[in-house]
Simulated scan of single mutants.
Amino acid sequence: MNSSALFTYQKNTGGRMSRTDEAVEAITSMIMDNGWGGGYKLPSQRSLAETLEFSRPTVREALVAMETLGSVVIQPGKGVFVSGGHSATPVVKPPSLERMVERSGLSGHGSQMYQFRYAIEPAIASLVALNATEAQIADMTVVVEAMVRAIEKEDFVGFFKLDFTFHSQMIEAANNRFFIEAMAPFLGLFFESQKIPQTEDSGVKETVDEHEMIMKCIAERKSVEARKAMEEHVRGVARRAGVRLLV
């Protein structure tokens, strides 16, 4: 246990759970014991791992699970924050697709979002293969693995959130601040566009297969292949949404 930590934690050793479930319980207890309210930024993954005596991959997977449950929000480039509550810095829910489309002037032009994604995301995937740290690649791999488990549990709400988390991590892992700043205003609309093709179960397995291929290319540091894999994914997402991309 790291005695120099600036927060309190009392380990609960009762029961028999997986290491990930134990980490979820430990982090949840830490939040409650310290009285951290909505909007509070959690300590870094390294700090959590050292203090709670878990490996960093286990902590990463626990945080992804907690985001799926709605207890924390992972914000690329900023950190992990406690959800809800009455903090002065509450987490803002993405606006609805209809409202975003109306506000952005895209009403009647639904295919434009997918055209935008096709133009931008393959370039991001290519940069991720070149620039991502090993820790960032590990984070994205954990999310894809969690997506597979969400399908097995038929937890499609959790699946949607994980899908959005993956693409948010991709933006961050490009390690190019211009992409991060350029994409920030569109994340709400992007979140909704991720959900549209998944209203039918048939598209979920295809989506996971595409994510796994993207991660394979990134892990092997193959930027050209990562770009092509992302192009295939965006085309698939558009097709499952009933949108024909003219590319």
Rank of each mutant, 00 (worst) to 15 (best):
M113A: 13
K222Y: 10
M113Y: 15
S193R: 08
I214K: 00
D209H: 12
M213F: 10
M183S: 08
F190K: 07
T133W: 01
F179E: 03
K216R: 15
T165D: 13
H211P: 01
Q169L: 09
G203Q: 05
A184C: 07
R227T: 07
G188S: 05
Y118A: 13
A119F: 13
A173W: 00
D209N: 15
G203S: 12
I137Q: 00
E210L: 15
A150F: 02
A184I: 07
E121T: 09
E232D: 14
E172R: 02
E206P: 14
G158N: 05
K205V: 12
L187G: 05
D139Y: 07
K228M: 08
V224W: 09
E145Q: 06
N175W: 04
N176H: 15
F179A: 04
I151S: 10
A184S: 11
P185C: 03
R239V: 08
S126T: 11
E231Q: 15
E145C: 03
I120H: 14
K153F: 09
K228Y: 10
K195M: 11
S223F: 05
K222D: 01
E206V: 14
S223G: 10
I171L: 09
V204G: 03
P122S: 04
G188P: 02
Q115S: 13
S126E: 12
R239K: 09
A150V: 03
A174L: 06
Q112K: 15
A184Y: 07
I137R: 00
R117A: 04
F116H: 15
E121Y: 06
G188M: 04
E181K: 11
P185F: 04
A238G: 04
A182T: 13
T207L: 13
Q115E: 11
R221D: 00
E181Q: 10
M147S: 05
L130E: 15
S111F: 12
F160A: 14
A132C: 07
S193I: 08
M215F: 01
G188A: 08
T207A: 12
L162F: 03
A219F: 00
S168L: 14
A138P: 01
F190I: 05
F164A: 14
C217A: 11
E220V: 03
A132W: 00
F178N: 14
N176E: 13
Q169R: 09
K153C: 10
V224I: 13
Q136T: 00
A182C: 04
R227C: 06
A184P: 06
K205D: 13
K161F: 06
A135L: 10
N176Y: 11
E121C: 03
S168W: 03
E172S: 11
E220N: 09
Q169M: 12
M140E: 00
M113L: 15
C217M: 06
